[in-house]
Amino acid sequence: MTMLKIDNLQANVAEKPILKGLSLTINPGEIHAIMGPNGAGKSTLGYTLGGRPGYEVTGGSVDFLGQDLLELEPHERAAAGLFLGFQYPVEIPGVSFVQFLREAANAQRKGRGEEALSGGEFLKLAREKAGLLRMDMDMLKRPVNVGFSGGEKKRAEMVQMGILDPKLAILDETDSGLDIDALRICGEGINAIMRAPDKAVLLITHYQRLLDYVKPDFVHVLAAGRIVKTGGPELALRLEEEGYEAVVQETAA
């Protein structure tokens, strides 16, 4: 079965068309990268797939593992196996990661008709995934993202992904704000958590550097709300050398 099939997706933000007929198919076991200039609509694609209020779908369809994704509420999309890694993870004062993630994991399990995790089972799982991202368990006892550096927030996103164990992860600029070591740790984390025959990843990124660690099967260029070019890993290298403009213009010509 196809993991994700986006067909001619159109979406408005604040009444303004941002996605203008975007099509993309992702099969299980694949890693796709989407690259593109600032303002192209990359984050809009992630938020629209996540069901964020204010991102209004005006046309097209999205099938996720045989379900009409656009019909589902954000929490139902999560329970169905979708994970959205935020470009700007949100701070939530007063709510600890441990408390939030245990409730989230159990809400998802409930949505799928599975048993809830006990406190002990959850902590064991959280410790294992935090270890994978070299994150101290004590950080997860702190309020969600509050006082975390940019890099710590991104690693915490990956810990969440590990705990929630999604089928498809859409990771929006997970590499921005990371130093070289954190980039490698996140890259290896993504591979450890998501490289499996029944999983898939959509990496949204500006830079080639994350792709050195997480080798994509396909690279797409998103410009002005549409996929304008698709290739293999070599396309990312070309973009890095020649810039988006040259590659996009060559397509238009």
Partner: peptide, 14 residues
């Protein structure tokens, strides 16, 4: 609203 969407995107009901 940003916080609510963040929590819901992780699976919490509204």
């Amino acid at each position: 609203a940003n916080g609510l969407f963040y929590l819901m995107s992780r699976g919490l009901t509204p």
